[in-house]
Structures are given as structure tokens and as C-alpha cells.
Design a protein around this nucleic acid. Structure first.
Lengths: 344, 344
DNA sequence: CTGTTAGCGCTTTCAG
DNA sequence: CTGAAAGCGCTAACAG
């Protein structure tokens, strides 16, 4: 109970050795004889000293074994998103193997200053909602790795979103199709809407715009034009936004033959609503998703989508951070041919 | 860039005031004139000092604004469980309002010693897989609150699992029904199996056993006997375990008329498998879940289950910890009448 | 309202 | 291999 009051100094005094010896017994086994070390450790256990105080170690050593995972959005939102939570899974798995701990950090926070002094580094998953964090991160002395977006001169992990979107769209489209696109964070609006002529946000770093580019490359190839009123913006990959958008799309006229969705969550809501409305998939409506979440395989018809391994991304991100790898990695993806696109 | 090298002392020197004044400017506005304070803050910004080093503050003040959330299992597993992630959502939401940060901690870790010295407290969600953590937690000087299980003399948050299980079972059962139970962590086994005469683990604190008690109270009331070979054990509320168990149950003879499931995930897998096998729900098979996850409402027929608000639990847990409330709270639950039980 | 000072608990040269 | 001593950067008395 009073273990918390015992300091290394107290212990040194009690055991009649110097503080350095105790410290070494815990941290640097090579600095003293095995026998002595074991004796000290045993004595410590006996008197209830469980090792050097971590707070002091952090200050002194400048490392804490804590890695901050900066999420794009609030933790609340991210943790219930299947893609993000799969990513977190990967990160935590890799961190755990290295004895590191995981601090979750919201991307809509004011600043990273609260933690920058004591964490060992940052994994930044998606462009944080608060852009100020990007500035802070890019000038931070602590190592940073970004995932699904880029900061100049900072290592990152991505997939080729443009190519992936192109492939899934090309697979789904036939000449003459009426096409609609359900996009993610395309413009600066907190609600679901068509993009019309609103300025696209953040063009460079946004994965959404890369995906849009890919979709449009495929439509051009099939001589299909997609006007801006057939492109919807959703502020988040969230089921209720998705439902709204799905309803708009399915009741719009002409009703599309193909809907390209920038996430599986969106696609799944669209699918469900279509089925509820008695629309046959894929005969009357083809749907593509993006991400490859499990639920897309459980549902009937199975979702046609792009699979990317979020777990793998998480593992890679954590590993790259800890090993200080400096490269910008591009991971593979895979087209999954479900049944929401006719294979004829 | 060299902001990280500036210390409070340097700044004091540069601005020609004492270190205490700088410290006060940042931490105790009441200790100096508003004018002076603002001037100092501005100067600091100008020379690139962003405030006292947090690592040093942690050591000095003994608080870090970090709260550890100890999960029952590995982070990887917990973060993809809808119930746990909803809980995390609640916790992070409440923490955020208080400017606290969230450290995720795995319940199968070796020890909490790694972090106990610098976190401000522990929220412990479910009995940790490694029981040693419970000992450490119970002797820790840092505040602790448990959720869904109890540690003596430690505040906690629970629902009345026995009563909830009783109610859902009573609702589902009719005299003469053949009953099976899909339970969670009932015995000490890493795989899905019937419990037979294996000793039940951890009887007191386990919510699973409270639920089992509730189910059995209901069956007794209806003069139904449920032998131990009609009770399955699943090591986790995990879809693949659930599928195994579902298959065993549905192919066992006599095939049950009612299956009481200790989580919605289990119930949903059972439901899906039953439908795939052409078994009519609820006409030929009644199913009950536990938890009230969203997916249970999206599926057809809708799941009959016990709803408990995991978000609310999370919020309460965080609040209670931060406000040092000492009571053992019992939260309400609600029976949700879906369509997996006939309402006749 | 401001400045001085003594640590918070530890690690790490550097002599011995 | 061991011990003495100097901080890591900061805060909170306390005295002025």
C-alpha cells in the first residue's frame, strides 16, 4: 500500500547500496553482477518497491513508451467506424509487441501540445479535422507517420486511391449507364448534398478526390458523363448520412443504373434501402463500395468493392514509426467481385 | 523547430523575469496582473515557447490528464467489438469534455506497473483476462472504477444482469419449449463447447453467471429443465466462435425451440445461420440476444434482446472517476421486443 | 504581485 | 563493478 511512497533513494538507503546500483539493477543488467542484481530485485520485491517511478523516467529519459494515434475525427466517431477500428487493431497489435502503449488522440482537438512532450511519436490516421494539428505535427521534433494522407517530408502509408477507384468503376460500368457517385468529404459542408459547383476542398491531400479522379477516368473511358449534380457529398462515412444520401439517389430521376460509393458503409446502406424499395441488385442497380469491410461479405448480394487491409496498414504504420523508416509506402489493394455488380 | 529546446528557465532569462512568473502566466492567471500575463504569453509565442514541458509537469504535479481504460482483453479484440467500442465512445466523449486523454490498456497485459505512475486513474471495463491486474488495481493508489464487474471497496457500474436475463428469457419461453443457452466465458476453455460438468469459473464476479442464473430462474418458472449439455460456452463474443456454436446448436437433437444468447453478436450469427438453413424464425426457432447493438435493429427479423446503454456506461464511468464518486451504481436496462420471439 | 529556492524521482557520466 | 553528484524542467512554498 505504501509502495507508492518508496523511492529509489529510500530503497538504496535500506539496502545499503547506492541509487545507481538500484537503478542499474532495474534498467541495465550488464552494469552489475548477476548475483547482486537478483539479490537486489528480490529485496525490492520483499519491501514492496516495484521499480523506478515511470513519471520520473519519462522526464529523465525523454521517452515514455507511449505512442499517440491521432485520428481524423473525434475518438467517439472513429472508434465505431469499422475501417478505423480495424486500423486501430493493427496499430495496437504491433505496438503491443514492442511494449508500447497507445494513446488515442482526437483529430478535432485544439492542439497536440498537450501530449507532444511526453509521447514517443505520432501515427496520424487520415487528415485531422483540425488542420492546425498538421502544422504542429510537421514541425514537431517527435517522429510522425501519416496514413491515408501526406505531409511533406514525413513518412506515410497509402494505397493508390485513384487507381483503385478506377478499377472498381471500370469493372462496374457499361456504356450508356446512368451513373451516380456517393462521395466523402468532397466539399466543405456539414450535411449530405450534391456537390454542384461548390469548390472541392483540400484537393491535393484528400483521398476522396483521388478516388473521384479514378471514378471519372473510368467513366470517361466508357464515354459516360457524370455531371456535378450526380455527385453527392457526405461529411462522414456514417450510416445516417448514408441513408439520407441513399434515399436522395434512389428517388432522383433518372434513377442511376450504377452507384459508385466511396465507402462500404455507404454502399451497404444504399444496398439495404434499394432492396427495401424493391429495386433488384444488380439487375436494376449496380453498387460498388470501397474498403472491404467484413459486413460486405456477410450481406446478400455480397458487395463488390476494393479491399485494402486496414490491419496491415496499422501494423505497418506502427512498425515504421518505431523503426524510424522514412519512406512513403504504397500498399496494394484488391478488387473484390461481389454480387452487387453483374458479372456478365 | 528549436521550440523543443527552450525551457521555462531560458524564457525567464530572456524576458528578464523569474521562472515562477512564467510558470504562473501559464498555470495560475490569478497570480499576476492581466497585462503582465498577456505580455508574457505574447513574448513566449514570439520566441516560440509553447508552454511548460508536460513531462516535467507530470513529475512535478503528479497528474497527467491521462486516464487509462483497461479493457477485458487485448485492444485488438475489444476495439472491434460493437459493445466495447460503444463503451469506449462514451468514455472518450466524457473525458474529452474534461480535457483528459485516453490511454487504451489491454486486459491481458502483464501488469499495470508500466503506467500506474503517470496516469490519473483507471477505468476497468470487464474483468481483465489477466487476474493479476485486478490485484494491482485494488492496491493501487490511483483511483479506479470498474464496469461490468466488481472489486471490493471500489466504485463500479453495472446493470442487474440476473434480472435482465430473467426478463428476456421469461418473455421468450413457453411451457414445453426445448431450450438451449449460448453462454460467454462460463468455463475455463479457449474453445467453444458445451459446459457439461466442468466447473464454472469465477462465479462471483462474472456477469455471465449472473445471466445464466437469470435464464435458469425463468426456465424453472416455466417448468423447463435445461441440462448442462444444452448450455454452450464461448470464450469470446466473437463471430467465428458464434458460428461454430450456432452450427452445433442447430444440428443438435432435439433441435431447440428457443436459444438464449448472452450477446447480440452470438444471436445474430445464430439467426443468420438458421435462416440460411431454412429454419423459420420465430415460428420454428425463437432467439434472444443481449446488449442491444444497432445491427440487431437493422436485421430482419429484428432481434429480441436486452438493451443497455454502453455509451451511458462509458460516460458514467468517466464522470464517476473524475469526480471521485464512490458508489456502486446499477444502471437500468430495457427489454426490446424484436421479431425473433413470437409475440403471441 | 514577484523572485528565490528546494525538491518531484530518476539516470548517467565520471571517478574510484 | 560501485558511489557521488549534477541535472531532466518544472512548481509551490515562502519571503520580500
Amino acid at each position: 500500500m505504501n509502495k507508492s511512497k518508496l523511492t529509489l533513494k529510500d530503497v538504496a538507503l535500506q539496502l545499503g547500496v547506492s541509487t545507481a546500483t538500484i537503478s542499474n539493477a532495474f534498467n541495465r543488467p550488464d552494469q552489475l553482477s548477476k548475483a547482486k542484481r537478483e539479490e537486489i530485485l528480490e529485496q525490492c520485491k520483499k519491501i514492496g518497491y516495484s521499480g523506478p517511478n515511470k513519471a520520473a523516467q519519462i522526464l529523465r529519459k525523454g521517452t515514455s513508451n507511449i505512442v499517440a494515434l491521432v485520428l481524423a475525427d473525434s475518438i467517439s466517431y472513429m472508434v465505431s467506424d469499422p475501417v478505423a477500428s480495424t486500423f486501430i487493431k493493427g496499430v495496437s497489435h504491433a505496438l503491443r509487441e514492442q511494449g508500447k502503449h497507445l494513446l488515442l488522440y482526437a483529430g478535432d482537438s485544439q492542439s497536440i501540445l498537450d501530449v507532444v512532450d511526453f509521447v514517443d511519436g505520432f501515427i496520424c490516421y487520415g487528415a485531422p479535422r483540425n488542420p492546425k494539428l498538421v502544422d504542429e505535427l510537421s514541425t514537431s521534433v517527435k517522429p510522425v507517420i501519416t496514413v491515408d494522407f501526406d505531409i511533406e517530408d514525413t513518412p506515410s502509408i497509402n494505397i493508390d486511391n485513384e487507381e483503385a477507384a478506377y478499377q472498381v468503376a471500370r469493372f462496374a460500368l457499361s456504356e450508356g449507364d446512368q451513373v451516380a457517385i456517393l462521395g466523402l468529404r468532397l466539399i466543405d459542408s456539414p450535411s449530405t448534398c450534391r456537390i454542384y459547383d461548390n469548390p472541392l476542398i483540400d484537393v491535393d491531400s484528400s483521398i476522396s478526390h483521388r478516388r473521384l479522379d479514378g471514378y471519372l477516368r473510368a467513366t470517361h473511358e466508357k464515354n459516360i458523363t457524370v455531371s456535378n449534380e450526380r455527385v453527392w457529398h457526405l461529411p462522414e462515412s456514417d450510416r445516417s448520412f448514408a441513408r439520407q444520401a441513399a434515399r436522395e439517389v434512389l428517388t432522383s430521376s433518372p434513377r442511376p443504373d450504377v452507384v459508385l460509393c466511396m465507402s462500404d458503409i455507404i454502399a451497404l446502406e444504399l444496398l439495404q434501402m434499394a432492396l427495401d424499395m424493391g429495386i433488384k441488385v444488380p439487375e436494376e442497380l449496380k453498387i460498388t463500395g470501397f474498403d472491404g469491410i467484413e459486413e460486405g461479405e456477410r450481406v446478400r448480394p455480397r458487395l463488390t468493392t476494393i479491399c485494402q487491409s486496414s490491419t496491415e496498414k496499422g501494423v505497418r504504420a506502427a512498425t515504421a514509426l518505431l523503426e524510424q523508416l522514412q519512406d512513403k509506402a504504397v500498399l496494394p489493394f484488391e478488387l473484390r467481385q461481389g454480387e452487387t455488380v453483374s458479372t456478365s
